[in-house]
């Protein structure tokens, strides 16, 4: 029975892979449904906001100019800002571009101290911070230090 051990482990491995594939198929369907729901909610909310804005526009018709100025500007001051944070193996530097008062673009200019496998995961935070329009995002589990470096650098730039 030299191969018994091997076959038993092979079957266990196939079982695990099968479970992960089954989970993934369910999770993908679920994620699609969640996305659909969120899109529907967002559509309704957008509609509500539109109605609200029309209502407020009517209310503040008198000082229209001021209202427009407020709607056009985001929370940040336009410009290009450099920031620096401490990652796992040294400095992490970013360039944050603010357009129309919003974070338009974050470019990582320095990450040479980070191990590639870890940095690649932490890099997803760039998009997350643009979406959140803030540096208040959670670190990536397992790549905590690279994440902290990026977040710190963006926070510094802002």
């Amino acid at each position: 029975m030299k191969l018994g051990n091997f076959i038993a482990k092979l079957l266990s491995l196939l079982l695990v892979i099968g479970f992960l594939m089954y989970y993934q198929s369910v999770a993908v369907v679920r994620a699609a449904a969640v996305e659909e729901n969120e899109a529907a909610i967002a559509a309704v909310e957008a509609h509500n906001r539109e109605v609200q804005q029309e209502y407020e526009a009517l209310l503040r018709a008198a000082d229209e100019a001021e209202a427009e100025a407020q709607a056009a500007e985001g929370p940040y001051v336009n410009g290009v800002y450099e920031g620096e944070g401490t990652g796992y193996g040294g400095a992490v530097r970013v360039r944050v571009e603010i357009v129309g008062g919003y974070i338009d673009h974050i470019e990582v200019t320095e990450h040479s101290g980070e191990d590639p496998a870890y940095y690649m995961l932490a890099e997803s935070l760039v998009d997350a911070m643009v979406t959140a329009q803030s540096d208040q995002v959670d670190t990536v589990s397992g790549a905590t230090f690279s994440s902290q470096g990026l977040i710190q650098a963006v926070g510094h730039a802002l």
Partner: peptide, 26 residues
């Protein structure tokens, strides 16, 4: 070794959170 094992953690953290599995560097 930590990156490889973080792959195991990543898979089960995503399952625990009900998220889809992700092909990433871990």
């Amino acid at each position: 070794f930590v990156a490889g094992f973080s792959g195991v953690k990543n898979i089960f953290q995503r399952i625990g959170a009900g998220q889809t599995l992700q092909w990433n560097s871990f």
